[in-house]
Amino acid sequence: MRKLVLALVTSAAGITAVHAQTRPQDFPRGYLGLGGAVAGTAYNIKGIGNVNKIDKTVTSIKVFGGYEFDPIWGVEAGYDNFSRTNFDFTTGNFQAGTGNSDGYGVYFASKGRYPINDQWEAYVKLGVAFSHRRTSTSVGLNFKEDDTGPYGGAGLQWSFYPRWDFILEYERFGKNKPNGAQADVFSFGTRYSF
């Protein structure tokens, strides 16, 4: 296992060194990205108990894009499609039931970047987000929740090839939701600068 980890680290360092000289530094520039996002789930529905979260987390597709004015400042917008999650429960009169929840989150944020070296940078994002959750149950309890609130994020970005970057970040979509995907989201993905 140690040899595998050492080989991966050595390969990554080699790729980084080879492409260090060719990373584009032209500003202003735009970018588009695609990735995934993972969030925990919760279900808090009046009248039901013993909720069994079949899907404890939800993994979703994330699409985002932005514009960088210079090496430090930019803006970004994105969309997370929170896939359907399932749960089962019992009602107060011991009737068994099932349910599911889905939703999405969109955001617009300003972005501050801190270059660490030629390949790595850290960044923070602050803005506004809109979140939508829909929950349906087999016993007729259905809910729709919308929330507009603050958005925040922080992450790391690695330039692994000219114009291509890998991102890993934490995002917060407003306040926690009573049902479905929660506000704390961990995202990953790639982006292309043009």
Rank of each mutant, 00 (worst) to 15 (best):
M1F: 12
K3Y: 14
K3F: 07
L8G: 03
V9A: 02
A13V: 02
G14R: 01
I15E: 01
T16R: 05
A17H: 06
V18D: 02
A20C: 08
T22L: 11
Q25Y: 09
Q25I: 06
R29L: 07
R29A: 12
Y31C: 07
G33L: 06
L34Q: 05
G35M: 00
G36W: 01
G36N: 02
G40D: 13
T41D: 04
T41P: 02
A42I: 00
A42C: 04
A42D: 09
Y43S: 08
I45F: 11
G49W: 12
N52Q: 09
I54G: 03
D55T: 00
T57S: 07
S60L: 07
K62H: 15
K62Q: 10
V63Y: 14
F64W: 11
Y67A: 03
E68Y: 09
I72V: 15
I72L: 15
G74Y: 09
A77R: 05
G78W: 09
D80T: 04
F82D: 00
R84H: 06
F89Y: 15
T90Y: 14
G92W: 15
G97E: 13
G97P: 09
G97Y: 14
G99H: 03
G99S: 05
S101N: 15
D102M: 04
D102E: 13
G103P: 11
Y104N: 08
G105Y: 06
V106A: 12
Y107F: 13
A109K: 04
A109Y: 11
G112M: 14
G112S: 14
R113H: 07
P115N: 10
N117E: 05
N117R: 01
Q119I: 03
E121Y: 11
E121R: 06
E121S: 07
Y123A: 02
G127A: 14
V128T: 08
F130P: 04
H132G: 05
R133Y: 11
R134G: 11
S136L: 15
S136R: 10
S136F: 15
T137V: 07
S138H: 09
G140M: 02
N142Y: 12
N142D: 15
D146H: 13
D146G: 10
D146I: 12
D147K: 05
T148F: 12
G149C: 08
G149H: 12
G153W: 07
Q157I: 04
Q157M: 08
Q157E: 13
Q157F: 02
S159N: 06
P162N: 06
R163L: 02
R163W: 04
W164P: 00
F166G: 00
L168G: 15
E169W: 01
F173Q: 03
F173H: 13
G174L: 05
P178V: 10
N179W: 12
G180H: 03
A181V: 00
A181H: 03
Q182G: 00
D184R: 02
S187P: 04
G189D: 07
T190L: 14
R191M: 01
